[in-house]
Simulated scan of single mutants.
Amino acid sequence: MEDLDRLAAAAAALPASCGPVRIVGVDGHAGSGKSTFAERLSDALGGAPVLHLDDLATHQELFTWTDRLLTTVIGPLTRGAAARYAPYDWTHRTFGPERVLEPAPVVLIEGVGAGRRVLRPFLARLLWMDLGAEESWARGRRRDGPAQREFWDGWTAAEVRHFSADPSKPFADLLVRQGSTGYEWLQQPSVTA
C-alpha cells in the first residue's frame, strides 16, 4: 500500500485540471483491473469519488457516451458544482436513479476510454492498466461468465475499433502493472495531445 499512498499523494499535489478538481483517468482494456485499482487508489486518497464509465455507456452506446460525460459530469465539475448522472443498468437496459458526484480535490474516472482524446484536456493524470488485450478479455470473460459470451464477442470488436481510432496508452503518464505483491508503475513519456 505504500506505493499507492505515494501515487495518491502525487495525484493530490497535481494542479487542478477541471475547475477546482484534479481528474485522474484510469484506462485499459476491459478486464485489466481498472475498477479494482481505482477503488484502491480512492481508498489511498481518503475516499476520492470514482466515476465508472460503465455507468455512462449503454448496450447501444459502448463508446458514444462522450457528450453525456461532458454535459453531466465534466461541465459541472469545471464550475465547481456537483455532477448528476443516471447510471445505466446493464441487466434491465435502462438508466437508474440519479447519482451525485461532488467535486473533490481528486476525482477518479475509470473505464475503457477514460483517456480518450476529448477527455485528455480535463485530466491531471492518465494511468493505463498495462495488461494485454487477450489476457484482459479472458479475465473479463471469466468474471462475467458464459451468460455474457455474446456481449463479450461484440465488445472485443468494438474495443479494438475504439483504441485503433483513439488510443489512450501512448498518452498515459504512468503504466500500472499488477504484480504478485501489489502494483508497480512504469513512467511513460506523454505524447502531445
Rank of each mutant, 00 (worst) to 15 (best):
40 R>K: 13
31 G>I: 09
140 G>Q: 07
43 D>A: 09
64 T>F: 09
151 F>G: 11
131 L>G: 00
13 A>Q: 14
71 T>G: 03
113 G>W: 05
31 G>Q: 06
187 Q>V: 05
187 Q>F: 01
153 D>N: 13
55 D>Y: 02
129 M>G: 01
145 G>M: 11
127 L>W: 05
149 R>V: 09
31 G>M: 04
179 G>A: 12
149 R>F: 04
64 T>A: 12
183 Y>D: 00
46 G>S: 13
67 D>V: 12
156 T>W: 11
161 R>D: 14
88 Y>A: 01
35 S>V: 03
120 R>H: 07
103 P>C: 10
186 L>Q: 13
2 E>G: 00
174 L>V: 01
186 L>A: 11
75 G>P: 02
64 T>P: 01
12 A>F: 10
48 A>E: 05
99 R>E: 13
180 S>W: 05
165 A>Q: 11
57 A>C: 06
181 T>W: 07
101 L>K: 00
156 T>M: 13
83 A>G: 15
124 A>C: 04
156 T>I: 10
66 T>I: 02
157 A>D: 12
7 L>N: 09
140 G>S: 13
25 G>W: 07
163 F>R: 02
7 L>F: 01
38 A>S: 15
8 A>S: 03
21 V>D: 10
143 R>W: 05
30 A>D: 01
42 S>F: 08
84 R>V: 14
174 L>D: 03
9 A>Y: 14
62 L>G: 03
92 H>W: 11
132 G>E: 15
154 G>V: 12
116 R>V: 08
77 L>A: 13
39 E>H: 07
73 V>D: 01
73 V>S: 14
128 W>L: 03
74 I>C: 00
112 V>K: 04
185 W>G: 04
25 G>L: 15
